[in-house]
């Protein structure tokens, strides 16, 4: 992005340092007011016209509800009637002293760290296997495994299913009595590994993470695999010749070249992980349990708004969620400052 310092709206943008957009602006000196306006129209008319509709729709349906929500977080709104008053920072004070809130924050942070990491890691791993793991052929230093297109199709399956459906499916899978998982473990003689899964506070959150990872790995396999197949084979060949092994080629060639894609995926996964609402609501004991072991901020917003009629507090939690996300985005942004390679 350009570091354009914008002058006030009436002034003509005379020069943009390092301007990369020729055909858009030509520097000029000394203009009459009318000319200035014409130029301003000429210059900004097109961007304005193109932006107007998206910005208006976005402002009405996204920005304004969110700003209203932030306003509500300073009220004692119940969510059930339009009768409420301002209470200052009371909801935030409650929040900071609520044990459940901090438990939920902890779980959200864990989800934010683990789910994207594991999903993207597995995605990269399988994509690498698909593209580079094959038996070597004549004339090719590296080659994909046979049937890689079938894998890509199959792996993508969970991604096209609604999360509500997936959550429901896994709820049955985890069922301790006749769920597929325990039945399977029993069937292959591993009875000792049978667990209560979602009913065990030590395992429940991890069970949810498995579902979130299960859903999304396929998408990143396809995405990364596409990226990898676009990396010229010569790079690998050269590296291999140079004495590098496949692991080094992965970290020295594949990963740096895919970094942008990984970063986009990271942000996307992070947002998904933060919103663990559907899996918590559909799958867990309580929901949110056992013993609050799967409480997350999204579900708390939901229960406070809808079950307890404390929408003021709920919106305060929502604002906290926003802050967690922003911190996450800043961290990912910093990771993105890594040196980039181009080809």
């Amino acid at each position: 992005m350009q570091h354009g310092k914008h002058q006030s709206a009436t002034a003509v943008v005379a020069k943009v340092p390092g301007g990369k957009h020729p055909g858009v602006k030509q520097p000029r000196v000394k203009l009459s007011t009318r000319q200035k306006m014409e130029r301003a129209y000429h210059q900004y008319g097109f961007p304005l016209g193109f932006l107007a509709l998206p910005v208006v729709i976005y402002a009405i349906f996204v920005i304004s509800p969110f700003v209203q929500s932030i306003y509500y977080s300073f009220t004692d709104w119940t969510g059930l009637s339009s009768d409420f008053k301002m209470v200052g920072f009371k909801n935030y004070d409650w929040l900071l002293h609520d044990d459940l809130f901090w438990t939920a924050v902890g779980h959200n942070v864990l989800l934010l760290l683990v789910v994207p990491l594991v999903t993207l890691g597995l995605g990269l791993f399988f994509a690498f296997m698909l593209n580079v793991g094959g038996r070597s052929k004549k004339n090719a230093a590296v080659s994909g495994v046979r049937g890689s297109s079938i894998y890509k199709v199959v792996y993508f399956f969970p991604q096209v299913l609604s999360i509500a459906i997936v959550a429901l499916l896994f709820q049955f899978t985890y069922n301790p009595r006749n769920g597929a998982l325990n039945a399977f473990l029993g069937g292959i003689g591993l009875d000792s590994l049978q667990q209560e899964w979602l009913a065990d506070p030590k395992l429940a959150l991890w069970c949810l993470m498995v579902v979130m990872v299960w859903c999304n790995v396929g998408f990143y396999v396809v995405l990364f695999s596409a990226g990898m197949s676009a990396i010229p084979k010569d790079f690998y060949e050269a590296a291999l010749l140079d004495g590098a092994n496949r692991i080094t080629t992965f970290f020295r060639i594949t990963l740096p070249l895919l970094w942008d894609t990984v970063q986009t995926g990271w942000i996307y996964m992070g947002i998904l992980a933060l919103d663990a609402f559907a899996v918590v609501q559909i799958m867990t004991v309580g929901p949110g349990g056992p013993a609050d072991s799967t409480q997350v901020l999204g579900y708390m917003v939901y229960t406070k708004t809808f079950r307890d009629g404390q929408a003021g507090r709920a919106t305060a939690i929502g604002v906290a969620m926003l802050i967690v996300t922003l911190i996450f985005a800043v961290i990912v942004g910093r990771l993105g400052r890594r040196e980039r390679l181009e080809y």
């Binding site: 059930l80 009768d83 307890d308 009629g309």
Partner: peptide, 13 residues
């Protein structure tokens, strides 16, 4: 997922 009666009553709904 019933609505909270306490709130409905308190808010004169």
């Amino acid at each position: 997922e019933q609505m909270d009666f306490g709130t409905l009553v308190a808010k004169n709904q």
